[in-house]
Design a protein around this nucleic acid. Structure first.
Lengths: 343, 343
DNA sequence: CATCAATGCTTCATCGATGACGCATTCTTG
DNA sequence: CAAGAATGCGTCATCGATGAAGCATTGATG
């Protein structure tokens, strides 16, 4: 029994064996008391109180590693996000953590820099630490992550970008983009008398969100009888510099390009605004820009920037309901974004 | 030995016992091979290769909970951050994760909403999961966290906001604020001919960063012979709305308030800009604003917004050198911020 | 060829927590 | 008052990984 000599080292953590020795009971009783199972285990209220008091005095806290090992249940839920450089993923992370804690889970979030290799590594690391669930947010290769999880017997879910091997919650990108495009085109027409198409900037041609948004972008143009200019569709990646360079390149080869734009994220918007500032400083006085993403400061920059805000609270509610329902089969839930800036 | 029957459940994880059985060796040998200790343990190259191949085939991955329990070493490093709603903490989190992984550690970051109670809860949760180190970033009550860690025999460090019970790495707030204030005052003088003092908005009067910045703010005024208006020092908290309300209140009681400002974070700047937009739309044409924080979009809003960028790479380098040196005694390292927007 | 060393692996206790099982007591009930 | 039920708690195997100690073999040495 005496697994431990009294006061071995001052930094040694207190265990249930220490408490048991002090209380003159068994580790089993201490365990039962401290994990709340003592009524079922028919431990007397007197002993329970004594042990609880002792635990507080001694600053005891469970070793979750040991507990998880024994219970085969870690209570850890992992989330993978691409970046922390924008409000969207930031609010997803913050809210996810709160919701996880409310549910008695321990959230661990990791940021994988939009790098598919890192995503895989991060997922493997999480699995090693025995996560029970992984949420892949905006993953470059969601199906790869699902596969790895499935092989380890761990549930996975996709958020923001859909996959085919796990349930997914995403924004309604087509409809959101269609309405945003329509609104921008309409404003450019009304306010500036322009009937040009828009430029599409940012995102990756390979990801579902971007292709859906381009589809919505095209649909809105078509509905208004405006021909899309294919050379003005620039899914150049998410980095700000990429957007800046893409616009510069477009300008070099086609100085007659349209002025209005559809920008695919705030981080791309950053590059777009930089390009505007250096190359077309008066652009925002003559054309509106739509952004499929939301940033409060960008919102203040000009009335001619229209922003669509993805509905993070609803998306996470939906996600958690899938988690709670232990949904395994791949479903696709589309959440309409909030058209905050739209009239 | 036979801890497990073959193929109990398809979701059951492969263990070293499974591999040992298949390979016809002992779990001990498997363990040694897979954790790289096999040379020391005099395992033949042949067996090692066979086991490694098998591990890959079977999709084996260590159970870090079990490993950590046995080794008494989790390789987990925890970080607590207040919010994910700004570039500063976002870049700290991103970079911290990368650096932790480079060092073979498993980073877990959690966001505590500037709530001291949540900070404590989060620290306790991390300790339960056996973190080896906790970095308290921008903590409301850093010493409380240090105490809890010390009691558990775990190292702690402070970042961004200093504490008295653990080593701290922070920005040189006094000097940074002094120079920013000086620059804003000078610009207001040169460009707008104004010799008014500035308004100080945002932050908490109770935190070290804010008091140091106010000290630098005062020092710069004094050096230029400008009297600070005490009613214009508004450490109203970090939330955007708080800044907006504080300015509104100031305007109500003192409509003669100065126009130039020192804003204590980008999130406060958001509120300031909102107030400007609704109440003083031409303010930025007649006064400059300094912001002790950096945001690329705000930077584009006006040339009259001067921003100081905290030097996250250097701060984290310093932090990791303390971690590597196993520094326990409280020291205070001040890193000069980068005056990006300053001329 | 006996002795000792080197090689290659297995055995087993352990990390801390958990809970099925079982053993004493005390309490009911006929 | 005996038999069974209820109460209260301890024993022990277990979760998966680890490494000190030990046990066979094979190789080297005089």
């Amino acid at each position: 029994m005496g697994h431990r000599v009294a006061e071995a080292s001052p930094t040694k953590r207190t265990t249930i064996y220490d408490l048991a020795k002090i209380a003159g009971t068994s580790a089993s009783a201490v365990s039962a008391v401290l994990n709340g199972n003592w009524k079922k285990r028919r431990i007397s209220e007197k002993l329970a109180e004594r042990i609880q008091k002792l635990a507080v005095e001694q600053g005891y806290s469970v070793n979750m590693q040991a507990s998880a090992l024994r219970r085969e249940r870690s209570r850890i839920i992992g989330m993978i996000v691409p970046k922390y450089d924008n409000r969207y993923f930031g609010s997803i992370a913050e809210r996810f953590e709160i919701m996880a804690r409310d549910r008695g889970l321990f959230p661990i979030i990791t940021c994988t820099q939009r790098d598919p290799e890192l995503e895989v590594q991060a997922a493997r690391a999480m699995l090693s630490y025995q996560v029970e669930t992984i949420i892949a947010t905006g993953a470059t290769d969601p199906d790869r992550i699902s596969e790895i999880c499935t092989a380890a017997g761990v549930r996975s879910f996709n958020l923001d970008l859909p996959g085919s091997r796990a349930p997914s919650v995403i924004s309604d990108n087509f409809e959101g983009a269609r309405r945003l495009t329509e609104e921008v085109l309409r404003r450019n027409m009304r306010r500036f008398g322009a009937t040009e198409p828009l430029i599409f900037v940012g995102g990756r041609g390979s990801d579902n969100n971007t292709t859906e948004r381009i589809r919505g972008f095209r649909a809105a143009h078509e509905a208004m009888g405006i021909a899309v200019r294919d050379d003005c569709i620039l899914p150049c990646g998410y980095a700000a510099e990429k957007a800046e360079q893409a616009l510069q390149r477009l300008y070099d080869v086609a100085p007659d390009h349209p002025r209005g734009m559809f920008v695919n994220s705030t981080i791309s918007l950053e590059g777009v605004l930089r390009w505007i500032k250096t190359s077309q400083p008066d652009l925002l006085q003559t054309a509106a820009i739509g952004c499929f993403d939301w940033d409060p400061v960008a919102q203040l920059l000009s009335d001619n920037i229209l922003m669509v805000r993805q509905d993070v609270p609803t998306m996470l509610d939906q996600l958690w309901s899938l988690v709670a329902a232990d949904q395994i089969a791949p479903v696709l839930i589309k959440v309409p974004p909030i058209s905050a800036g739209l009239v």
